[in-house]
Computed example of a mutant assay.
Amino acid sequence: MVLKVLVVDDSSFFRRRVSEIINGDPRLQVIDCAVNGKDAVEKAAKLKPDVITMDIEMPVMDGITAVREIMQSNPTPILMFSSLTHDGAQATLDALDAGALDFLPKKFEDIARNRDEAVALLQQRVNEIARKRAFMRRPAPAARPTTTAPTPTASRAPVRPMTSRASSAPAAPAARPVSSSARFKASGKRYQLVAIGTSTGGPVALQKVLSGLPANFPMPIVLIQHMPSTFTAAFAQRLNGLCKITVKEAQDGDPLQPGTAYLAPGGMQMMIDGRPGAARVKIIDGGDRMNYKPCVDVTFGSAAKVYNDKVLSMVLTGMGADGRDGARLLKQQGSTVWAQDEESCVVYGMPQAVAKAGISTEDLPLDRITERIFVELNLV
């Protein structure tokens, strides 16, 4: 089945360029274009596209407002295009907050080494998020009582929490599902570090997991999110305002402290150096040969060397297989590896790679990961 795509941008040149790339994939077809947010809302309701690509800055109605209205009336997977600036980062995070599933830089040369690579990446992103269309349009299930960890009642800044419609309803069961009524048991292992890797859908997933942790969380957390260099500082700032723990963009030499999450800076690689109890963050050049900057495998691998069997690691939603090799090293040292389950992922790529390789010990729904952390660390 050919997937229908609505392209939204006020630039005729960009509409034509994006349409040509999308139509170059036999699995995709641009069914129409919209010139502003208002036009997009109307055409989304009329044409029922499988995916929408959306600009942020447009006349009449901006892309963020359009995303919010579309998600309220006709929930549809939306891929944002944004500029790689601080303001662009803030706007993109607002768009994810409103319900968009993913984003790409508007300058294609910023996301790939050549045109063919950029074309393939855009086509792949559209195809991946299109899988969520039927899932998003199902009515959300009634709330079910669970013994979850306490949720935060206040934040440090007036920032709206990000929510994802893509994780609000069930889809096909994962290989090892955890029912909503399942009671978790602690493994009895002792940890000194939490490590989380993610990509597409990660900003919403990380906010959901981290916002439930207490300010006195007993160990440091390292976060690896595939994200451009101009976005990570803004993302860390936003998480810091939403969470009780401290969240910061990692800097070279940062000592790993309990109750603090360190977000790997975009365009660089984050490693852990030293010894347990006196470990520090080491930031190095991203390297031209690495596909991901930051790379989950790099951070996980260094964590395995320093902390051996004392790491509680998680691979969340994301495209590709980054994190599989690093997770394997962690498991070989005796550390614990969890994966997000298929039904709650925006893209079941990275977690699937870990699960299929037999590395993860548990596949968990996003809305129960924080609860599982509480039980595993005996915080309840």
Rank of each mutant, 00 (worst) to 15 (best):
M1C: 08
V5D: 02
L6E: 06
F13L: 15
F14N: 08
R17V: 10
E20L: 13
I21K: 00
I21M: 12
P26V: 09
R27W: 01
I31H: 07
D32Q: 09
A34G: 09
N36Y: 08
N36H: 15
A40H: 05
V41W: 03
K43M: 11
L47A: 12
I52M: 13
M54C: 09
M54P: 04
I56L: 15
I56P: 04
P59R: 11
V60H: 12
V67M: 06
E69S: 10
P75L: 01
S82H: 00
L84F: 00
T85Y: 06
Q90A: 14
A91V: 04
L101C: 06
D102P: 01
L104C: 05
F108R: 01
E109F: 03
N114E: 06
L121G: 01
N127F: 07
R133L: 02
A134W: 03
F135L: 10
A140I: 12
P141E: 14
P145L: 12
T147E: 15
A149N: 14
T153A: 10
A154R: 12
P158K: 08
P158T: 10
A171F: 09
A172S: 11
A174I: 00
A174Y: 01
F184N: 08
K185S: 14
S187V: 05
Q192G: 14
I196H: 07
K208P: 00
K208Y: 10
K208T: 15
L210W: 02
L213C: 12
L213R: 07
M219D: 10
Q225Y: 08
H226I: 12
M227K: 04
F235T: 03
R238T: 10
R238K: 13
G241L: 10
V247Q: 05
D252P: 04
G267H: 04
A279Q: 07
A279H: 06
K282R: 14
Y292P: 00
T299C: 13
S302F: 04
D309Y: 00
L312E: 03
S313Y: 00
D322H: 10
R324M: 12
A327H: 01
L330R: 06
K331G: 07
Q333E: 14
Q333V: 02
V346I: 13
K356G: 02
A357Q: 09
G358V: 09
G358W: 11
I359F: 09
T361I: 13
P365C: 11
D367A: 08
R368F: 05
R372M: 13
R372D: 11
L377H: 11
N378G: 12
